[in-house]
């Protein structure tokens, strides 16, 4: 029962955040039922393939995660000791700054902020009818999950809260035990290298920073992504090494997704699918290097 409660709680909170963000960053005019439905339908149709691909990766993730842990103990390498040898008690040092307020903030960011950060750009792109950016985003998510899953099979690693419980508290689960019902549904405690929280949050931050639209949302994305990255360590769930690997994974995923999208644009005949009405003009200098690079 309480798992359902947690899921419901997350859905409600994230829903409210979405509504507010759409009003602020997308514009109320986009929210008219007829306009919104048309925009979403056409954008989603244009982004159909990556959407299906991502769904397939997530479905595979769900299946492989079950046998993956077993497989991981058979073929994988236990790198917990190696990670500990690299960074030692860094996470404990991060946690030494813990305050109840910070714990509440980072706990909120880790669960609610994360879901919000990952889903909002997809909604915004759909409402704004930016199928190209939506496609890039979805492809990048797919790479994150796909590569992450392979890493999880190849590397067995427990997080700092499991390796050094006397130094690192499971702040999230201790302050909000029910959240573990959710996180243990989503992932295993041996799957910490790399941090998918970090990589997906960083992916969103990088893409919005390099993208044309949502420029006013950029600072929000950047701040939220940074908070999530810190929260993974602050809450004792991930090592700094996981975070570094997560950022690298994000970079790889973004580059790969953009390459794929650029190739598609070329074969289709130019990226003319942006129906944007203005936000892109806010930051022309961001656009130039990208445009200059795309036809390479």
């Amino acid at each position: 029962m309480s798992l359902l409660d947690v899921v419901l709680e997350v859905a409600v909170v994230v829903g409210v955040l979405h509504l507010a963000s759409v009003l602020v960053f997308v514009g109320p005019d986009r929210l008219r039922p007829s306009t919104a439905a048309r925009a979403v339908r056409s954008t989603v149709r244009a982004a159909g393939t990556p959407l299906v691909a991502l769904a397939a990766v997530l479905a595979a993730n769900g299946v492989v995660r079950r046998i993956g842990v077993e497989l991981s103990w058979v073929v994988g390498v236990n790198v917990t000791g190696a990670i500990y040898a690299i960074e030692g008690t860094f996470v404990a040092a991060v946690q030494s700054y813990a305050t109840p307020a910070a714990t509440a903030y980072f706990g909120f960011v880790y669960v609610f902020g994360y879901v919000y950060l990952l889903t909002f750009p997809a909604i915004a792109y759909a409402l704004r009818e930016h199928p190209g950016e939506l496609r890039t985003l979805l492809i990048a998510y797919g790479f994150n999950y796909g590569i992450g899953l392979v890493c999880y099979v190849l590397f067995v690693a427990y997080g700092p809260r499991n390796l050094m419980p006397e130094l690192v508290d499971s702040l999230l689960f201790e302050s909000w035990p029910r959240s573990q019902l959710l996180t243990s549904q989503v992932n295993e405690n041996t799957n910490v290298f790399p941090s998918l929280h970090t990589s997906l949050a960083a992916t969103v931050a990088i893409l919005t920073w390099r993208g044309d639209s949502l420029s006013r949302w950029r600072p929000v994305a950047a701040a939220l992504a940074a908070s999530i990255v810190v929260s993974t360590m602050y809450l004792g769930i991930h090592w700094a090494t996981d975070v570094v690997a997560g950022v690298a994974l994000a970079a790889v995923s973004v580059v790969a997704a953009e390459r794929i999208e650029a190739r598609r644009d070329r074969s289709v005949g130019g990226g003319a699918d942006s129906l944007d009405d203005g936000d892109g003009r806010d930051c022309p200098d961001d656009r130039d290097p990208r445009d200059g690079r795309m036809p390479e």
Binding site: S2, F173, P177, R178, Q180, L181, S184, N189
Partner: peptide, 16 residues
């Protein structure tokens, strides 16, 4: 099955 001892206690104190 729950994730850890503290979660198990949480489930009991919540009455679940």
């Amino acid at each position: 099955v729950v994730g850890s001892g503290v979660s198990a206690v949480g489930v009991v104190t919540d009455g679940d």
